[in-house]
Each structure stands twice: as structure tokens, then as C-alpha cells.
Write a protein that binds this DNA or RNA. Sequence first.
DNA 1: TCCCGATCTCATCAAGCCACCGGCT
DNA 2: TTGATGAGATCGGGA
Length: 793
Amino acid sequence: MNVEELSGLPPGAIDHFREEGIEELYPPQAEAVDAGALEGENLVAAVPTASGKTMIAALSMLSAVERGGTALYIVPLRALASEKKEEFEAYEEFGVTTGVATGNYESTSDWLATKDIVVATSEKVDSLVRNGADWLSDLTCVVSDEVHLIDDRERGPTLEVTLAKLRRLNPGMQQVALSATVGNADEIADWLDAELIDTDWRPIDLEMGVHYGNALNFDDGSTREVPVEGSEKQEAALVRDILQEDGSSLVFVNSRRNAEAAARRLGQVSREELTAEERAELADLAEDIRNDSDSETSTDLADCVERGSAFHHAGLSSTQRSLVEDAFRDRLLKVISATPTLAAGVNTPARRVIVRDWRRFDPSAGGMAPLDVLEVHQMMGRAGRPGLDPYGEAVLLAKSHDESEELFDRYVWADPEPVRSKLAAEPALRTHVLATIASGFARTREGLLEFLEATLYASQSSESGRLTAVTDDVLAYLERNDFIDRSGGTTGDTDDADAGSFTSAADLAAQRDEDEADELEATSLGHTVSRLYLDPMSAAEIVHGLESADERPTALGLYQLVSRTPDMYELYLRSGEDEQFGELYYKREAELLGDAPSEFEEERFEDWLAALKTGKLLEDWAQEDDEERITERYEIGPGDLRGKVDTAEWLLGAAESLAQEIDSEWTVAVREARARVEHGVGEELLELVSVGGVGRKRARRLYERGIEEPADLRSANKGVVLDALKGQKTAENILENAGREDPSMDGVEPASGDTANPRESRTEGGTDTRTTAETDRTDSEGPEDSQSSLGDF
DNA sequence: TCCCGATCTCATCAAGCCACCGGCT
DNA sequence: TTGATGAGATCGGGA
């Protein structure tokens, strides 16, 4: 089918596609058009990655816009949201506008309402529903990308429930679901009342194979000699082999450490094939990586990159990740060793994909557990760059003949697992039941169960009792913690004396039969929790913690509190650290909020200490320890640090709202603790840091020179300011942001704080320029050198 | 006898990351 | 309840 034949698109769209080089539709795309993509029909497209799924979505959305509607595109990751945004923004040339809504993008609902296409993460959409964004009920087309993630234990239920809610809000809207090839795409199509497009078709061939010994055996029976020389690893031989044909490779491994080690080794291989020009470009790239953050991870990465090799995992900062991804797409980097982050993220195709580790440590399985077929296929699907490679190759590594056979059976010939809803689990329902009640989708228990009937879970499950049972447990939990009221029916103990205690939901299950016909209503607290997007269990923990504080909580106390909620990812204790943090615990026990578990409840006590570790990390950050020091001390990457800080910021923001809600007297303490994490500064710098352009380092330098608040910036000696801020441009910007009338720095010389008297160098008449003798610290060092490191306790 | 690389032993540790609000290191 | 890694110990060959 030729693009010319398409009808119902905005004028200019077809020209745009042709300019992009699109003339013919791929078969799955043509099939989608035949199935009514342009006429608002529901579709499920289960096709391999890079087979033009986005085009199917684009055609549906554009035709919906042309009919006067608006479209929503739901993605699983922020990074994908930005990627799609870039892609859709090109439609502006024919008048179709695009906006993005994710946690870190601007998100005023009014602004989004003006856009034709909105790209958002599933959580963001869920949050928008909870906060009652009106425009959501005007949607005429919703696309969900990577729907197979409904299978995910943590995040799948969110997508599932959100889709159900959007359907309820807009009964007539078009639903388009894009999925990897999965075992039961037909079930998903049934659930969504959609036409199914299920195909293995790919724009370029994918050959799958297993390397064993000196040979690479493909699924079509062909063989290729790839000898392993000396003591080198299989992946090294495979990377060299394809590199000699000027092809790139992607190596998937099962841990960060393995990714880094492999990248280091593969750098030996890739460096041999670099041109002088490439070396120079790589050196620049390495420099960018070093500049992005001070940490061992960055240095290691930069060292690899200079040789044309890189590693990629969640410990990298997002900047570093995109630097690596872009350079790989530009063929500058020859090989990336990655954890599964890369398979799930933005598009980074390679000529050859090597899945080195097909097992991953899984404590619940008691050892190494094989990866899902779906996951391995997702990695293999990264092989082959359309337009660049004649075909893609996906290779598994075997160390024995038996393993080779096993890998063929298990992954090459095998079909992916079916997608199964994970909704009927207590943690998932806890949050979604509350949200469903709070946002008015259900007002009674029956209404709630009826709503849940519209989910994939209900359509898949044969035993309907389970969902009901878990729902009842969850309702009891929510009521006990004062998030919902049940009236009309028999309500258990209504005085809520134990609102803050965490009675297990199961304990209360016994009373479920008594109150079948009751009405459900979220309490004011419940509404707040729902809107804040907190797990109710996190909220209960925070509320309880705040209520149990007799004195103003310290920052560490609050940091540990939010760190022990289920919404914070755990930082595990390494060997020996239980003692280290045990000591810290005894030293600072008084600061911690709520009841510590007994030391004899080993597991819970470990969790408590792990939360203390995370809390301490946040405290270090808020005491201006620098990145390098923290990443080293806690053995984490810059990406982890920023992730923790980000999450803490969010949770403390939520905690502040909760504190207000329960009339806690510690609201200000929470706000301050939050601001300190946000900016990574001590209390005394909070004022300064509120000025645009002033971060933790600049604030500290200004403060050391006696400039302690924004007002001081307006009156301070310019020479001193320039000395603190180095760059003239920076200094001018900051003065302007601080509201200074004459921010110009023309002709101003830096007045070195410790040698010259700032008042002499210029007569601006700063009010408070008492420079101190302690200014001479290096920028990278925190001010608190006395701040003990962990080893010092 | 010294030095350097190869080999062995042993302890250690293990994927990912979305969400409030509002403004920007 | 697995297995790759890396640090440190040990070994061995060449000069």
C-alpha cells in the first residue's frame, strides 16, 4: 500500500511522510489500515520491535486529530516519552501539536489540553486521572505502547487499570495497543474489543543463532566460523568478527559489574579498528562523560569509551546514557555491554546482538533463574539497523553442546510466554482500589468489583473469587488506616483508634461478610494519598512516623522515614555494613521516627538499617558531600544517587502534604528537609539556592564570602561575587535573577576573598561582605570536612 | 635470583525506576 | 542456593 492511498489524514501529513522517505507501508501497517486504523477502529498490533509500530500509532492518532479529536500516547519510560515527543513534534509542520507529560516535564493540565497529541507515562496518566484532568474525557484515541508490560508485577497493574478507566471515561474512543510478539495477543485483543494484527514480519531479516566452540549456528541451518583465539572470551571473538565487517554489536549481560568488566575487555577488541578521526571524536565524548559527573563509574566509562566500547546500566546518569546511546547510533561506539535497561529503552539497534547471560540471580528461585523468552526476544530484537545492515544477527552463547541444544529449544524455537495480568495482588490493589474510590469510579463495594470486571485480569481469570477476596482484604486495610469510610453497612470498629497501626489486612478479612452492601468513600486523607500518588502503605508509615515525633524531627529522621516506605527502592546492606549501620543506629536512634523493630526480628531489623543507610546517604547529600564521595562511599553510580535524591524529593513533598493534612506541627521541618535534599545543601544555604542559577556549589562559595541571602546579592561587591562565581556571564545572570538593578560585570575584576578586602576593590557598598578566612577550600570538597565518613563511627 | 605474566583460590555480590508540584544545576 | 569477577597468592619460565 502506498502512502498516497491513505485518506483521512491532516493535509500535509502524506507529504511529510514522503519527505521522511516513506512511500510504501510495511505489511503490518497496511494490515492496520485495512483493519480501520484511519477510521477509529480498535487495534492490537503484536509485531516485532522496529517493524513500524509507531507508524500504526501515528496513522491512528493523526486521523483522530483530523476528525477533530485528541490523542494520548502512553509509554512505559520517560526516556521513551522524550523519544516519541521528538518524533511527533515534526508533525507541527502541518499543524498537529504535541505535548509531553511525565514526572519531570512541565505538566499543567491546561497546557496539555491545548495539544493534539499528548505523550505520557502510564503512571502520569493514572495520576492525571486521579487529579481529575478534564481533557482526559475528551480523548478520541489512546495508544498504549508496549502493552505486554501489563505482565509486569510492579507496574503492569497501573497500565491495566488506567486503560480501564480511560475506556470508562470515553466509551467510544479508539484504542490502539502496541505489543511485542507475545503468546496471547488474541486475549488482549478480546479484552479491548480490537482487531488483532499478529505477525512476525520484520523490515530486515533477523537471524538467530547459538555460538559454541568455534562456530556460530543459525536457525536456518547455516553456519559461520567464528574461532575463539587463545584465552579470549566468546563475546570478544564475536565482536571482532562482526567489527571486521564494520558492524556494531550489543552484548547483554546480567549484572552491572559484568557489563563494566565486559566493556573493559571488549575495548581491547574495538580499539584495534578505530581510525584516527574516530579516536579524536571518542576522546571528546569521553571528556563529556567525565564532565557530566565526578565518580568512579564516569571515569571507568570514559576510559572504555576512548577505545570505542561502552557499558550501559541504570547506574549511569541519564545524560551519560544518552551520550552513549547517541554515539552508538552514530556508529562511533562499536560495542555496548549492557544490562537489560537497554533492551527496554530507546531504540539502539546493532548489527549483532549477543545475549551472553541468559540466567539471572533470583533469590526467590534460590539461584540463577532463566530469563523469560519474551525478555530474551526483546534483546534479540535489537539486531539489525534498518537501512544500514543487510540483516541482523542475534546470538546466544553456549559452553557445551548440551547447552547449545537447550538454548535453541528454550529461546530460538520457543514462543514467548503469554501476558498475564498481575492485578490480583495486594500491593497493586491497595493503591488502585483507593484511587478508584477516591476519583469516583466506584462508590460501593459492588461498583468497585464491577469496575474491576472490566480489567484484563477478570477476562483472564477463571476463579473470580480471588479478586474479590483480595479486594476485601484491601478495603479492610484502607478502612483501618483511615483512608476510606464505609457507611451504610456494618462497619467494624469506627473509632479508628488504631488508625496509625498496621494491622494486617488479612486479620480483618473475617469481617468482610458482614458489610457487603456498604458505600465506600475516601476520607480527606485518602483523597490526598490518592492524589499524591503514594502507595497507601507508604502514606500510613509516614503519617504514623510524623505522629509519633515528640520533638522536631531531624533531617536524618525524616530521610530514614521516607526511605523505609515501599515507594523507595532499597539500598541493600553489604557484608559488614550491618555492623557499621548498627553502630550508627545506636548512636542516632533518638532521631528516628516511629517504632524500630526489635533486633531479634532479623529481617525487619535489616530493612530498618537498610533504610537508615539510604537516609544517611540523603543526609550526606544534604550536607554537601560531593557526588564522587557519596558514590564511592555507598558503591553506587551517579544515576543511582540522582534516582534516590529524586525519589526522596517526591516522597518528602508528599510527606509535607500529609503533614498538613493531619495538622502535624512538623510541616515546616518536612518542607525544609525536602528543600535540602532537592538542592543538596545545608540549612543555611536554602535562601541562596532559591535564586535562579545558583546550585549547591555556587551557593556555598557565595556563602563563604559572606553573601548569605538573595538580598546580599543585590548589594554585594561585584568583585567578590565574580570571584565566587568564576564566569562573568554566570555572575551577570545570577545577579539579574536575584533582582539586582545593574547586573553588568563589565570591567569588574574578581576580588579574591582571602587576599583582598572586598570593600576596597570597589565601592558598591555591599551590606554584608564579611569575607572569611575559610574561603580557600577547593570547590569539589564539601564544607564539612569534619563530617565523619562512614568508617569513622 | 629477579621479574613478569599466567594460573589458582577465594570472598563477594547480583536488573530496572514510575509517581506530587513547580521551576531549572 | 549459582557463577562471574577481581584481588591477592602462587607458580613458572626466561634472562
